[in-house]
C-alpha cells in the first residue's frame, strides 16, 4: 500500500519515529524561514538531505522519481515569472517579472526540499512506526486509535473499490469523462456501507479478543543519544539559517 517506504536497517531506519518526526518538521520550518535570495543555503539543505540518504542507503534516483508528486506546484512556479508585476528583466530573450521570477524560485526551492524531506521521513519509517511516533509525542489516544485503524482499513477499502470497479467494467460499463460520476458516486455510497458494516464486524471481533478502548503502546522512549543524533540534520539546517541572516 505504501510505495514510499523503503525497508532497510540503517541508523536512520532504526531511529525512533518520534525523533524523526520532530527532526523533519524542524528541518522544513528552517527551510521555509530562509530568505529566498540566500541561494547557497538551499544547496546546503540539499546536501544535508543527501547526507541522510547516504546513511540510509537510499539512491538519489529513487527519491527523484517519487518527488514528481510535486509537479503541479512546479507548473505553478513556472507560470509565476509571467504573472508577477513590477520591474521586468530578460531571460533567454523573454521579458519576465523580477519579483515573479523570485516567487517562482521560492516555491520550487522550498517546495522541492520540503517534499524531499517528507519523502525521506516516509522512506525510512513504516506507517505503523509513524503512528507510534505520534503516540510517543503525547498525541491523545483517540487520535492514535483513529489513525492506526485508518491505516489498516485503507488497504481494505482501496482493494474493495478496485474489485467494484472491475466488476462494473466486466459487466460492460465504460466510464468516460463526466458520465462516470453517477456510477462512481453510487459506488462510493455502496463502498461506505459495505466498509461500515465490515467495521462493525471487526469491532465485535476486536472486543471478543480483549479490546477495551485503547491500543497498546508498542513504542519505547527515545534515548538522549537518539535525540542528539536524530536532530543533527535539523540542527545543521538551523545553523545554515542563522548563517543567512
Amino acid at each position: 500500500m505504501n510505495p514510499l517506504h523503503r525497508p532497510g536497517d540503517s541508523p536512520v531506519h532504526r531511529l525512533p519515529a518520534q525523533v524523526k518526526i520532530v527532526g523533519a518538521l524542524a528541518f522544513v520550518l528552517c527551510v521555509v524561514a530562509t530568505d529566498r535570495t540566500a541561494y547557497w543555503a538551499f544547496g546546503a539543505y540539499l546536501a544535508v538531505l543527501a547526507a541522510v540518504w547516504v546513511v540510509a542507503a537510499i539512491p538519489p534516483g529513487w527519491m527523484a522519481k517519487r518527488a514528481l508528486i510535486e509537479t503541479p506546484f512546479v507548473v505553478l512556479a513556472l507560470a509565476a515569472p509571467f504573472l508577477g508585476g513590477g520591474p521586468e528583466t530578460e531571460v533567454l530573450g523573454v521579458s519576465v517579472s523580477v519579483s515573479g521570477l523570485l516567487a517562482g524560485w521560492n516555491i520550487v526551492a522550498k517546495g522541492t526540499i520540503g517534499v524531499l524531506a517528507s519523502l525521506t521521513l516516509a522512506a525510512t519509517t513504516t506507517p505503523r512506526d509513524l503512528v507510534v511516533g505520534l503516540q510517543r509525542l503525547r498525541t491523545p489516544s483517540v487520535v492514535v486509535t483513529i489513525a492506526t485503524l485508518m491505516l489498516r482499513y485503507l488497504e481494505v477499502i482501496v482493494a474493495e473499490a478496485r474489485r467494484m470497479r472491475l466488476a462494473r467494467i466486466s459487466r460492460g460499463h465504460d466510464p468516460r469523462f463526466l458520465w462516470q460520476v453517477g456510477a462512481t458516486a453510487r459506488g462510493i455510497g455502496t463502498l461506505f456501507l459495505s466498509s461500515y458494516e465490515r467495521g462493525e464486524r471487526v469491532h465485535l471481533a476486536m472486543v471478543s479478543r480483549g479490546y477495551a478502548g485503547a491500543l497498546p503502546d508498542t513504542g519505547g522512549p527515545a534515548r538522549p543519544l537518539s535525540w542528539l543524533s536524530g536532530l543533527v540534520p535539523a540542527a545543521t539546517a538551523a545553523v545554515v539559517l542563522v548563517g543567512t541572516l
Partner: peptide, 16 residues
C-alpha cells in the same frame, strides 16, 4: 470503544 474504531474507518473512507 465502538465509535472510535468506526471513526478510523470513516477517516480511511475519506482518504480513499
Amino acid at each position: 470503544d465502538r465509535t472510535a474504531p468506526m471513526a478510523g474507518l470513516v477517516a480511511a473512507f475519506i482518504f480513499a
